[in-house]
Simulated assay, not measured.
Amino acid sequence: MADTLQAGDAAPDFKLPRDGEGFLTLADFKGKKLVLYFYPKDDTSGCTAEAIAFNGLTGDFAAAGTAIVGASPDPVKKHDKFRQKYELSFPLLADESKQMLEAYGVWVEKSMYGRKYMGVERTTFLIGADGRVARTWRKVKVPGHAEEVLAAARQL
């Protein structure tokens, strides 16, 4: 079941539209490590801080042989604006159908001020060059997170 995706499991495949144009698939990263992080919404404070943190470390991730991809249910046009505004150097995937979010178990029931709704649980997956989940961070707190993921990528 998707919500029990564990280290060692095969990462669910995907093919989604990305910012700019075109599509990305899991196979595009075959033989490379991948940080796949899921976030709720473009241009909100936490999501912006997380994107900027990962962006600031793209050179370090590249040196560790690791690509970075962000994914949210926002449409491609919104991703384009977000990526341009903050000069992000990694792709953003648009999962408007929420199929990938569900496959990775990050589309969950949330609650705010007593109101229940469906949304993205901020989650990061480190996927090994073999296409298997190496590590998972759920309910991510943004400060220090990108650095922690980088340390794990260097050890993988």
Results as ranks from 00 to 15, higher is better:
Phe23Leu: 09
Lys30Leu: 03
Gly31Trp: 10
Phe82Gly: 00
Tyr39Pro: 04
Ala27Gly: 15
Val106Gly: 03
Leu34Arg: 02
Ser89Val: 12
Met112Lys: 13
Pro73Glu: 02
Ala71Lys: 08
Leu93Trp: 00
Lys110Gln: 13
Met118His: 12
Gly8Ile: 05
Asp13Ala: 14
Ser111Gly: 01
Gly22Ala: 01
Lys15Phe: 00
Asn55Cys: 11
Ala63Lys: 13
Thr44Gly: 08
Lys41Asp: 04
Tyr86Arg: 15
Gly31Asn: 01
Pro12Ser: 06
Phe61Thr: 00
Leu5Ile: 05
Tyr39Phe: 14
Tyr86Asp: 09
Asp19Ile: 08
Leu26Asp: 00
Asp13Arg: 02
Leu5Gly: 01
Lys30Gly: 10
Gly70His: 04
Leu36Asn: 05
Arg115His: 13
Ser89Asn: 10
Thr66Arg: 13
Tyr113Lys: 14
Glu109Thr: 09
Arg18Ala: 03
Tyr86Ser: 09
Met100Gln: 11
Lys15Ala: 07
Pro12Lys: 09
Phe38Val: 05
Ile52Pro: 01
Thr58Leu: 15
Ala103Cys: 04
Gly114Val: 10
Asp28Tyr: 05
Leu88Lys: 03
Lys78Asp: 15
Ala11Gln: 06
Gly8Trp: 02
Ala11Thr: 04
Glu50Ala: 15
His79Glu: 03
Gly114Asn: 13
Leu36Trp: 11
Leu93Phe: 02
Ala11Asp: 07
Phe23Tyr: 12
Phe14Ser: 01
Leu5Phe: 11
Asp28Gln: 05
Leu24His: 03
Gly119Arg: 02
Pro75Lys: 12
Ala51Lys: 04
Asp60Ser: 11
Gly59Leu: 02
Asp95Lys: 08
Ser89Pro: 06
Phe23Ile: 00
Asp74Ile: 12
Arg115Thr: 08
Glu121Trp: 00
Ile52Tyr: 00
Val120Gln: 02
Gly22Leu: 10
Gly105Val: 13
Thr48Phe: 14
Tyr104Leu: 13
Ala49Arg: 14
Gly105Gln: 02
Lys30His: 11
Gly31Ser: 04
Glu102Thr: 14
Phe23Gln: 11
Trp107Pro: 08
Asp28Phe: 08
Leu93Met: 09
His79Ala: 13
Ala27Glu: 15
Ala71Asp: 09
Pro12Asn: 02
His79Ile: 14
Lys81Ala: 15
Arg18Met: 07
Phe23Ala: 00
Lys81Met: 10
Asp19Ser: 11
Glu21Asp: 14
Gly31Ala: 02
Thr44Ser: 03
Thr58Asp: 05
Ala64Arg: 07
Lys98Ser: 06
Asp9Ser: 05
Val120Trp: 01
Ala27Arg: 15
Phe29Arg: 06
Lys110Arg: 14
Lys110Ile: 08
Leu36Gly: 06
Leu5Ala: 10
Lys32Tyr: 04
Asp19Tyr: 01
Ser72Gln: 06
Ile52Arg: 12
Glu87Ala: 11
Leu88Asp: 07
Leu92Gly: 03
Pro17Cys: 13
Pro40Asn: 04
Glu102Leu: 02
Asp42Arg: 03
Asp95Val: 08
Thr58Gln: 12
Tyr37Asp: 12
Leu93Tyr: 06
Gln6Arg: 03
Glu50Gln: 15
Pro40Asp: 03
Met112Arg: 09
Leu36Gln: 08
Lys41Gly: 04
Thr44Pro: 05
Asp74His: 01
Ala94Ser: 15
Gly20Tyr: 03
Lys15Met: 08
Asp13Asn: 02
Lys32Val: 04
Lys77Leu: 13
